[in-house]
């Protein structure tokens, strides 16, 4: 029984917005299954009372003063844009409302 099915991989691809080909799905499912078996070893460590670590170092309260710093020019901001129009990023029609 694999830990991850082809259908689940297809679902993940939709979540991750990657249009995987059928061929890739065929390959990825068993590969991910193997990798998940490896990484699943973390569950062998009994750690109920262990706090999780999200950051490498225990820093807190790093903040900056509410001050302005110079912006990019609109030309710089748009310099990498695949398409632009009227000083805005031009994107294909959006299907879903946010």
């Amino acid at each position: 029984m694999p830990s991850i099915t082809r259908e689940e991989v297809a679902h993940l691809a939709r979540l991750a917005r990657i249009e995987l080909s059928d061929d890739e799905l065929d390959h990825l499912a068993p590969q991910l299954d193997q990798i998940i078996a490896l990484v699943g070893q973390v569950s062998q460590v009994a750690a109920d009372d262990i706090p999780p670590t999200s950051h490498a170092l225990p820093l807190t309260n790093v903040m900056r003063a509410d001050e302005n710093i110079p912006c990019l020019t609109p030309e710089q901001a748009l310099s990498g844009a695949p398409a632009s129009e009227a000083q805005r990023f031009r994107v294909p029609r959006i299907l879903e409302e946010d």
């Binding site: 991750a16 917005r17 990657i18 249009e19 995987l20 080909s21 695949p82 398409a83 994107v91 294909p92 029609r93 959006i94 299907l95 879903e96």
Partner: peptide, 16 residues
Amino acid sequence: DDGTNSAETVMSLSRE
């Protein structure tokens, strides 16, 4: 981005 594909589709195709 052929004028018919949606932003959502273009994202998925580009990332692929």
